[in-house]
């Protein structure tokens, strides 16, 4: 009998009742070191397109000009939060989790060279790649309006029904051409080297 009374008294304590009704685990928090979607910092983007070069997901990051300044823009739903763009950016424009701090501390670097190869069998000389190439458009602004280029300084140009590479060394590896080629004829190889401590 005493035990029953003890139990009833135990369960009628306000503290017990409130704990029973509001039992919750600790609040859900995301740790600060989690690699979240990259955010832009104060630094100025120089439009080197290194982030677009390294990004493994299609259409996840794009460098666009908004109100007169170039900025990288992340598309949620495409970005896979790998954090490679944060490591590759030479100007520290992007930040995610603690990658930026680690990168500065350990002097991590991802640097690349680019090689364009065109399959002559599948290239039909439509010129999509030359028109969409951001570097081409920078060099020869007439591409935007006319769609054809006379300049010899561009990376590639359609010549006699075939796309010809003129200046491979100017390529920034953004692979915009790859995404716009209807035949998958153009491929950009990005030979990326991962180094540490500032040495190459």
């Amino acid at each position: 009998m005493t035990s029953i009374i003890w139990y009833i008294r135990e369960f009628l304590r306000p503290a017990w009742i409130s704990r029973f009704l509001t039992a919750k685990t600790e609040p859900l928090v995301t740790p600060p070191y989690f690699r979240d979607f990259p955010v832009t910092t104060e630094n100025e983007c120089t439009q080197c397109l290194a982030c677009m070069m390294i990004c493994p997901a299609p259409e996840a990051i794009i460098v666009v000009k908004r109100e007169g300044v170039w900025r990288p823009e992340i598309t949620k739903g495409h970005c896979i939060r790998c954090g490679l763009c944060v490591e590759a950016c030479p100007e520290d424009v992007l930040a995610s989790g603690r990658i930026l701090a680690t990168k500065k501390e350990e002097k991590l670097l991802l640097s690349g060279t680019y090689h364009i190869s065109i399959n002559p069998k599948t290239c039909m000389g439509c010129g999509n790649c030359s028109v969409v190439c951001p570097v081409n458009r920078e060099i020869d602004p007439s591409l935007r309006s006319s769609g054809t280029s006379r300049s010899n300084e561009v990376i590639m140009r359609v010549d006699t029904g075939q796309n010809k590479i003129l200046h491979e060394e100017k390529c920034t590896g953004c692979k915009t051409c790859e995404e716009h080629c209807p035949n998958n004829a153009i491929r950009v190889a990005r030979v990326v080297e991962a180094t540490e401590g500032g040495k190459l």
């Binding site: 493994p56 997901a57 299609p58 259409e59 739903g77 495409h78 970005c79 896979i80």
Partner: peptide, 11 residues
């Protein structure tokens, strides 16, 4: 990402 955009598989 997959149901939204196809993630890295949408190639």
């Amino acid at each position: 990402n997959c149901p939204i955009s196809g993630c890295v598989f949408n190639r």
